[in-house]
Design a protein around this nucleic acid. Sequence first.
DNA 1: ACAAAAGTGTTCCCAATACACCCATGG
DNA 2: CCATGGGTGTATTGGGAACACTTTTGT
Lengths: 228, 228
Amino acid sequence: MSFSYRYPRPALTVDCVVFGVHEGRLLVLLIRRGQAPFRGDWAIPGGFVDVQESIDDAARRELQEETGLTNVYLEQLYTFGAVNRDPRERVVSVAYYALVRRVEHQEVAASDAAQAEWFPVDELPSLAFDHEEILQTALARLRAKVRYQPIGFELLPTKFTLTQLQQLYETILGHEIDKRNFRKKILATRLLKPLEEFASGRHRSARLYRFDRSQYQKLVKQGVNFEI
Amino acid sequence: MSFSYRYPRPALTVDCVVFGVHEGRLLVLLIRRGQAPFRGDWAIPGGFVDVQESIDDAARRELQEETGLTNVYLEQLYTFGAVNRDPRERVVSVAYYALVRRVEHQEVAASDAAQAEWFPVDELPSLAFDHEEILQTALARLRAKVRYQPIGFELLPTKFTLTQLQQLYETILGHEIDKRNFRKKILATRLLKPLEEFASGRHRSARLYRFDRSQYQKLVKQGVNFEI
DNA sequence: ACAAAAGTGTTCCCAATACACCCATGG
DNA sequence: CCATGGGTGTATTGGGAACACTTTTGT
């Protein structure tokens, strides 16, 4: 069976830059390509958009199929439409980025044939197609967005300590932050709900917090903004 | 002649929200549709992406063909890919927005058959497809972006007075701004080059300025930011 | 007891805001 | 001469940044 059109059409794909954090490093999930072109190279997970699914759905489906990840924060990034970005034929790709918690656990194991692996963003292998550009675009977006919108929480477990949160921000923004100022500022947003639980590490135990989503919605409606 | 593919493909279009300013109002350029569906309704200019042109090129071409506009500030906005956004068949649209100077002059006259007309953003007719959503997305982007990036200049003549600039910001942001504070802040950025020319209006003549693009590039490289 | 991380307040400075009057020009 | 918009300075305030020590816990 085949489908014919009066004019040639670009193929349409979605690609998804998946971010995670582990031991204070920002990671990206990549897939090793099994076929040409760029066979053996690493690439961002993605695939074709079915004609009967929305592009958001396509992004979620591909993510699930290629990495096993579900229920992640997912946001459209940018659409890449240079004529020769795929050497085989014209392919336009709508790029997304995803934020996932608990990189350590192997949701990635759920992936089928394809190999998937986490790479630190500052030690990337060479990537297929224009995926390097897509990845850098995603990174820039993440760095910019984390400053004024509380999306960082999507990269942490639901219960976390303030130190974890601070390290996350330091990791993403790439510079150190003063502990006292950070705590003052983050608590002043009233977006964190202190719990009566404590994380016991190797030393003094730290209070756990969770992100208060309903409070966030409330403040968004009031037009409050959250510069970090 | 026809083109056939193993799997059905969504059609790919570009749509372009064109903003302009006139007499202190923010306007959008719309096209009246000549055919069904939504015949007679107003719509954002746009059309199909050719297989041998980039999506950016497609946006510029469609803008030129439908409105006669060239050499405008153009930026990709978002890609709209809901399954039923076009009642005829699956169409994914990459939306752009454009900022144009001198709304008063009839570049629009260059358009061929189609009627094009400027509408104030707060007095829009009902729009075809999901164009209302696209337009509101563009508006939100413009309002957000104008605060931290000097794109407002793209809506003014190359030489302008500070009052013109202030009114533009007031128009876009939707609130009044203190004249003295605005001038202090805008001049402190050093992004405006004072000219030795003056605009003679009905009263005391006002100094003209132009946006110093090279200075802007320089400051961007230094990572300076420009909150207004 | 000590090493390591948790937790906490104050001072300083700059940038944002609020605010009112004189000046130049055209009619 | 007067109406209209052009142009300017200062005082106040609030938020961001800098900065160091005590507390708790595990080993």
